[in-house]
Design a protein around this nucleic acid. Structure first.
Length: 414
RNA sequence: GCGGGCGUAGCUCAGUAGGUUAGAGCGCCAGGUUGUGGCCCUGGAGGUCGCCGGUUCGAUCCCGGUCGCUCGCCCCA
């Protein structure tokens, strides 16, 4: 066993996993572009307060999951645990408030110091979409629809459910929070230890506790939607109507919550049963208070993030790899000619692999292993006649082709 | 951070009631086939049995610790 190990929770992405990863990212990027979203690549690390303030000191991410360190200049920096905070910071520091509304797509690695599990890593990758500056439900509808269409194109939508909820505006949310606090404070002794902790830090989180005792108490607990004021109800109804109109199926789930104070109105998650306990594949919500929390102008926002690894495991539309042609050269003259031939064929759009050395048998074996559909054999014999041998690696049939006619004979191997 | 399972060849795994040369399949290399891969046959290379310590005449096997992987909890993508 090699003593050189990757850092826990990190992976070398390659082979089919890499192709899945790419496919998820490209599908999302292309579709977001088609929806008019500009791509942004915020830094992979920021000053720690950008995340600490934005995620809330009480959140699990800030309490125990951030990769934080002091750099050589004595600055406290953190590897990003998500995209939203960095994008919000960019919005403020770049002075984009005059360009609203803004729509962003982003993709790349994010970091959380967690115990790895299936579909959960310390370095993982996300796709991310955000709309800044739209206070109305149109933004909620569009961004959810974008998520749904990405899942559809990945062939994953039929294994996902969209859970939808609203937290209402800040007034509604506060009212409900108080009601919940009142209720559970009376039963504090009966709550699970985790939920007693939540009572102090994040009462709404008790709603999705899995503890049976908590569940029993929840049956009698006040319902979120009873505390929504008319404006909040209208907003939610508009979001639902918009999704209905677009044919995006959802289930309203009053237990779906976001703990942080700046979250308002819409919260949603696309979840699947196919990945063990890590069910959420795309999740997000409206964060109208976030940019103000960071010290910027009050600006509404909504967004989601999707885990590329999880989406990759779920995708069923992995495209076929393009046809590969192995160029097998024998002897020095042929090898030198092969460079030029490869360049010509690549310029015409063919995928051409040079195997670099070894005998014919070895190069043929490599051609087979890398999945080449055809091999072009170029040896002294062929070269002296201005020909090459074109072998179909599926059928094993081969024939001599004059070099000028070679490109025209490769149509079947694209 | 908490709990369960598992670490034997590059990969997937067998194995030893603790005993001297640790196995298989696949993969890799070579030959059968001096310029032909995938199939077949033959041969070969490759292992500090995760690491450290303990028990023992003797540990890959038993015990403790540690590291790693994995599944679940918390939480999340």
């Amino acid at each position: 066993m090699a003593s050189l190990q990757p850092v826990r929770g990190t992976h070398d992405i390659h082979g089919e996993t890499m192709r899945r990863h790419r496919h998820v990212e490209e599908t999302a990027r292309n579709l977001a572009a088609r929806y008019g979203y500009g791509e942004i690549a915020p830094p992979i690390f920021e000053f720690t307060p950008v995340f600490a303030r934005t995620l809330g000191e009480g959140s699990d991410i800030v309490r125990k999951e951030m990769y934080t360190f002091t750099d050589r200049g004595g600055e406290e920096v953190t590897l990003r645990p998500e995209f939203t905070a960095g994008i919000a910071r960019a919005f403020i520091s770049e002075g984009w408030r005059q360009n609203l509304p803004l729509k962003f797509f982003a993709a790349g690695p994010v970091f959380r110091y967690e115990r790895p599990q299936r579909g959960r890593l310390r370095q993982f990758h996300q796709i991310d979409a955000e709309i800044l500056g739209v206070a109305g439900p149109e933004a909620d509808i569009e961004i959810i629809a974008l998520g749904a269409e990405i899942l559809e194109r990945l062939g994953a939508l039929d294994r996902c459910r969209l859970l939808l909820n609203t937290l209402g505006d800040p007034a509604s949310r506060q009212a409900y929070r108080h009601a919940l606090l009142d209720y559970f404070s009376r039963y504090e002794a009966k709550l699970s230890p985790d939920s007693r902790d939540r009572l102090v830090r994040n009462p709404l989180r008790i709603l999705d506790s899995k503890d049976p005792g908590d569940r029993a108490l929840l049956a009698e607990a006040p319902l979120l939607h009873k505390y929504l004021n008319p404006a909040s109800l209208d907003f939610f109804a508009a979001v639902c109507r918009g999704l209905d109109r677009l044919g995006v199926a959802y289930q309203v789930n009053q237990r779906l919550v976001r703990g942080l104070d700046y979250y308002t109105h819409t919260a949603f998650e696309f979840v699947t049963e196919a990945l063990g306990s890590q069910g959420a594949v795309i999740a997000g919500g409206r964060y109208d208070g976030l940019i103000e929390t960071l010290g910027g102008p009050s600006t509404p926002g909504i967004g989601w993030a999707g885990g590329i690894e999880r989406l990759g495991m779920l995708t069923s539309t992995l495209p076929a790899t393009p046809g590969l042609i192995a160029l097998v050269a024998l002897g020095q003259a042929a090898e030198e000619r092969a460079w030029l031939l490869a360049r010509e064929l690549r310029a015409l759009g063919h995928v051409v692999d040079l195997g670099f050395g070894g005998g014919l048998g070895r190069q043929m074996k490599r051609a087979d292993r890398i999945g080449a559909r055809a091999a072009i054999l170029l040896g002294d014999d062929e070269l002296s006649r201005g020909e090459a041998t074109l072998r179909d690696l599926g059928s094993g049939e081969q024939r001599r082709v004059a070099l000028p006619a070679l490109a025209g004979s490769l149509g079947a191997y694209r």
